[in-house]
Design a protein around this nucleic acid. Structure first.
Lengths: 315, 315
DNA sequence: CAAAGATCGTGAATCGTTTCAAGCTACGCT
DNA sequence: AGCGTAGCTTGAAACGATTCACGATCTTTG
């Protein structure tokens, strides 16, 4: 019925008495608006998709949560999808979201080359890249080169001259940038080429950090400063170092990256490079919402946020 | 067009030639089926909602991931919602899912009393409780009493006679059950009443574990065995203990609960009670799918899974 | 008191898909 | 040739909400 629709969507158009009556009936019958039909008719959905490689990763879950909160504040809802590091799964997520008619997409794509995202964008979906950057799309990223440099310079400033950079797969953009930033900073400080080792791990979990620590303990002479590509690596590494009887930070200093919750409560509270996760998520939905609003004469913006060094005890 | 629908849903009914032609057109035009309209017409959705208190908690993200994988295998998709520990947010999640016409619900409700879930169930939604149990609903839970007892008996078996149970809010069912199981086991073993302390923390994060460690270090005499309500508590606690120079497990033994990934790579690899998270998630979607299928003469099942003690180094 | 205007309620069309009855073809059989 | 049938295709109704033009009622005003 038309009136019911008005009561729900434009209550001011309907007389107080009728409004009451309709509301009562709604309560009585337990009527629930069928969002599905509503969307079909309106062609728009008030739902944004969030696609991340993993929800278990505190970095993504924090960013996503901030993004979702910002959406809710504007009457939008979030549809979470996890690609689990698989391109196939990512495809499946995008298919799902497209079929669900989301009006926008916050995505941290596994592979920028995959132009499925571009295709969706072409169909009129608002797209915001999380922690990636591309020419003709909105994006919010952190300046990882600066972040890496921040970490390296901190170690250098503490007179460390034998450094190891423990990193995840350098094929991943942000990871490579952190590493590059650190290496560049070390070189700029005039550090000797062979005083600088890179340990590339297949993943970025605490287990990988532990494995890195074992390889690191074989080095001779032992390095004195370590920069890890994320906090989980750093935590695993420190744990194994401590187990081996190496004192952190006296014998080896460690800097992490991300500043996840666990960083503060590690055996040795972690000195780390904080990414502004809340701001990242919030800004991403702002950009997306702006784009869904404007639709046509929208200007794509590439926002770059700054990382910050958090001093604790590990370095 | 009717034929297009047939090509997509019942390809055997349509002639090879037409099928090819339609497929070609689909490819050419970049046609994407509008799931919204499809659902509206069918009244059913091939989507299940997953409602958990937090995605950052590895326990829930693992359970949910297993559940989602099982859904995907059956052609269903998952809609993730996080209640973030707030009843309001949980309500919002349920409203959203109902409006989205999900055909089932996997939920770990904050408050069993809230009969919103029962209401949805009444509307014909398949409902499966995660880690909670109620009379007239399907559920998959772990026998936490046994889990708690497993942990306590392990400590007692190692001749520990001064025990502390560090726990989260006892208002949370599963948490209380773990605690009760442990306390009962200790009493059954004839442990003195005052040789048993309970430290209740407001949350169950590593930070709470650290706080617990500080309170614990004030105790005189120091306890020798500690059972933590989850691994995060245990990790935070051990970290602080080690920082204070207390040797684990020689001076104090610690048992955790969950067996999250981090447990194995902690400074002192954690002895812990493993919950079968994958099985829990998988079973939950099986129950839900079974219920959506049968609809009417469906028998509710309460599945209870068994925890398992994982021996590592911390106790 | 009548006409105009303001205020609300009504009914039909619409969104994109599924479903089903009915129509069409071509073929085989007698 | 005539008829039945299997195999496909077509067209229209339906899902539940929104939207909009129209009609009904009530109020105001000259």
């Amino acid at each position: 019925m038309g009136t019911v629709s008005n009561v729900l969507n434009r209550p001011n158009l309907v007389a107080e008495a009728t409004r009451q009556r309709v509301q009562a009936a709604i309560g009585e019958l337990g009527f629930v608006r069928n969002e599905t039909a509503r969307q079909l008719r309106q062609g728009q959905s008030h739902v944004l998709g969030v696609v991340v490689p993993s929800m278990a990763n505190p970095y993504f879950s924090d960013v996503g949560r901030a993004a979702e909160a910002a959406m809710n504040a504007e009457g939008f809802d979030a549809l979470w999808c996890t690609s689990d590091g698989s391109l196939t799964k990512e495809q499946r997520c995008l298919d799902f979201l497209e079929e669900q008619n989301v009006s926008g997409l916050l995505i941290s794509p596994l592979d920028l080359g995959a132009d499925r995202v571009a295709e969706l964008h072409g169909r009129g979906l608002a797209v915001v890249l999380l922690d990636r950057t591309a020419a003709d799309v909105c994006s919010v990223a952190v300046d990882h080169r600066t972040g890496g440099a921040l970490a390296a310079r901190h170690l250098l400033g503490r007179r460390h001259r034998r450094l190891v950079f423990v990193t995840g797969p350098l094929s991943v953009g942000p990871v490579r940038e952190r590493h590059d930033g650190a290496v560049r900073a070390a070189r700029d400080a005039g550090l000797d080429e062979h005083a600088l080792t890179t340990l590339e791990q297949p993943e970025m979990t605490a287990a990988d950090g532990r494995a890195a620590a074992r390889r690191l303990l074989d080095l001779d002479p032992l390095p004195t400063g370590v920069f890890c590509g994320n906090d989980l690596l750093a935590i695993g590494l420190i744990n194994e170092l401590v187990r081996a009887g190496v004192k952190v930070p006296t014998e080896i200093s460690v800097v992490g990256y991300d500043d996840i919750d666990l960083a503060a409560t590690a055996v040795v509270p972690l000195t780390t490079v904080r990414q502004p996760r809340e701001e990242l998520g919030r800004t991403a939905t702002e950009l997306a919402l702006a784009e869904t609003g404007d639709s046509e004469q929208h200007e794509h913006r590439q926002v770059v946020l700054s990382p910050e060094l958090i001093l604790r005890e590990s370095a």
